[in-house]
Design a protein around this nucleic acid. Structure first.
Lengths: 188, 188
DNA sequence: ACGGTCGACGGCAGTCACTGACATCGACCG
DNA sequence: CGGTCGATGTCAGTGACTGCCGTCGACCGT
């Protein structure tokens, strides 16, 4: 056994989610999170750039998976179809995470600073997707617009999935949302 | 003449933009902004909730104007056409503000915290537009998706307009961007 | 087995964003 | 002319975040 308990980041992330749920994001200090995780405030800030980031550690994984999914789509497909396929693939990531997503999203929605952070993560994701499209020969502004549209579909589908009590899968909501976007864009 | 110089907010906003351009957002303290405006730090925070907000004072005006433009669109129009019309109307707001927009946008793009703030302002705008659609009988998720798509069009068109040196108007870029979105959504 | 390096963490002092409480004083009102 | 009000100043405090340095098991080469 090492000098320190293992999985410091995991403990910090769990402690943070717990405290943010118990007393709210603003009423929680970094020192409290660190203490619950058996660490010090200084160590908290070694792992996370700020108090919000501890909730978004998984964002880069989502981004990687999303870009990966898009990359593994036939180059000949129309951008919107590639996006549809990537959305389909990505929803698998959330199959076993409805409850966790619900809790985390409730915390985020309740605080403006956390919403800001979520938005910039989605914007980063959008940029990455646009870059992927460009590397596949889609030119701007089509690349950026398809990426933005895909993120909008994801955002709205995800919101609705999280709000649902039922057993419908995320993929259902994403398909529905994308279909509606097509209808709307067609001017109907 | 009153006890204080008039237009404290205007002075603060100009001082802030100047300093953010001169030395960067992070390297500027609230006290410095206040001092250049002939005020104290405490007064700065009475006018703006935080250091970023001083750059976004006009955001609620844009939101009002945008919602207003959308409201004054024929109810019988398809949502996407109403959005197109609103975008057209809104671009008039920026007719005389290319240089100002360029400077401000350069500051924002250079700093992640400011980008976050911009994103949440756009998200707020999107919510307001979606609510307007709903009040006109468009149901969700079409209302939310049209709003999000419109904001995406605005964002991308605006970026390109700001980057341009030429004399093309914002409205041109918005039309182009919207047209491209329609093409993309149609799967071409 | 031993000295040296390294990585993860603790401790501490400091800056700055932001806040609450209270004081000031021209403008304006009756 | 006294009283109220609104915009600002003053001051003390909290907490987010950072730089710097110290600690000490793990690990590595000899």
């Amino acid at each position: 056994m090492g000098r320190w308990e293992p999985n410091a980041r995991g403990r910090l992330e769990q402690a943070a989610l717990e405290l943010y749920r118990e007393r709210g994001f603003e009423q929680t200090t970094a020192a409290q999170i660190a203490q619950r995780a058996g660490l010090t405030e200084r160590t908290f800030f070694r792992h996370y750039a700020d108090k919000r980031e501890v909730l978004f550690a998984g964002a880069h994984l989502l981004e990687e998976a999303f870009v990966d999914a898009l990359s593994h789509t036939p180059e000949t497909a129309a951008p919107i179809d590639a996006m549809a396929s990537a959305l389909e693939t990505i929803s698998a990531v959330f199959l076993e995470r409805h409850e966790f997503s619900r809790q985390r999203q409730a915390v985020i929605v309740a605080n403006a600073e956390l919403r800001e952070r979520e938005l910039i993560k989605l914007a980063s994701l959008s940029k990455a997707l646009a870059a992927t499209f460009r590397s596949r020969g889609v030119s701007d502004p089509a690349a950026s617009l398809t990426a933005e549209a895909g993120i909008a579909v994801f955002k709205i589908g995800f919101e609705r999935w999280v709000d649902e009590d039922g057993d419908r899968q995320l993929a259902d909501f994403l398909r529905e949302s994308l279909a509606e976007l097509k209808v709307v864009a067609a001017g109907r």
